[in-house]
Measured scan of single mutants.
Amino acid sequence: MTFKLIINGKTLKGETTTEAVDAATAEKVFKQYANDNGLDGEWTYDDATKTFTITE
């Protein structure tokens, strides 16, 4: 399955995708991506669209 991450950061904005077997796996990938890029914010997830959002 394809999951999307929408980034609404103070300095970084955009989106990225990952292929994962489930939402929990995708969340780990996206949280590592956010950590690697210095993002810290509030996370939301929409199961209907398989989309995570981080807002700083």
Results as ranks from 00 to 15, higher is better:
1 M>H: 09
2 T>Y: 08
3 F>H: 03
3 F>R: 00
3 F>K: 00
3 F>I: 01
5 L>T: 01
6 I>N: 07
6 I>E: 05
6 I>V: 11
6 I>T: 06
7 I>R: 02
7 I>H: 07
7 I>E: 02
9 G>C: 05
9 G>W: 10
9 G>M: 15
10 K>G: 13
12 L>V: 10
13 K>R: 08
13 K>D: 08
14 G>F: 15
14 G>D: 13
15 E>K: 03
16 T>F: 12
16 T>Y: 13
16 T>P: 03
16 T>V: 15
18 T>G: 03
18 T>Y: 07
18 T>S: 05
19 E>K: 11
19 E>C: 06
20 A>V: 07
20 A>P: 01
22 D>N: 10
22 D>A: 03
23 A>W: 15
23 A>Y: 10
24 A>L: 11
24 A>T: 11
25 T>W: 12
26 A>C: 02
26 A>N: 00
27 E>G: 08
27 E>R: 11
27 E>M: 15
28 K>I: 10
28 K>Q: 10
28 K>R: 09
29 V>I: 11
29 V>K: 07
30 F>H: 01
31 K>N: 06
31 K>H: 08
32 Q>M: 14
33 Y>V: 05
34 A>H: 01
35 N>T: 10
35 N>S: 12
36 D>K: 08
36 D>E: 12
37 N>G: 04
37 N>I: 10
39 L>W: 14
39 L>I: 10
39 L>G: 02
39 L>P: 02
40 D>G: 10
40 D>H: 10
41 G>A: 03
41 G>H: 02
41 G>P: 02
42 E>N: 10
42 E>I: 09
43 W>I: 09
43 W>P: 02
44 T>V: 11
44 T>R: 07
44 T>K: 10
45 Y>W: 05
45 Y>L: 02
45 Y>M: 02
45 Y>Q: 01
45 Y>P: 00
46 D>Q: 09
47 D>G: 10
48 A>V: 14
48 A>I: 08
50 K>C: 04
50 K>Y: 12
51 T>K: 04
51 T>M: 07
51 T>H: 03
51 T>S: 12
51 T>F: 03
51 T>P: 00
52 F>E: 00
52 F>W: 10
53 T>Q: 07
53 T>P: 00
54 I>V: 12
54 I>N: 01
55 T>G: 04
56 E>K: 03
56 E>R: 02
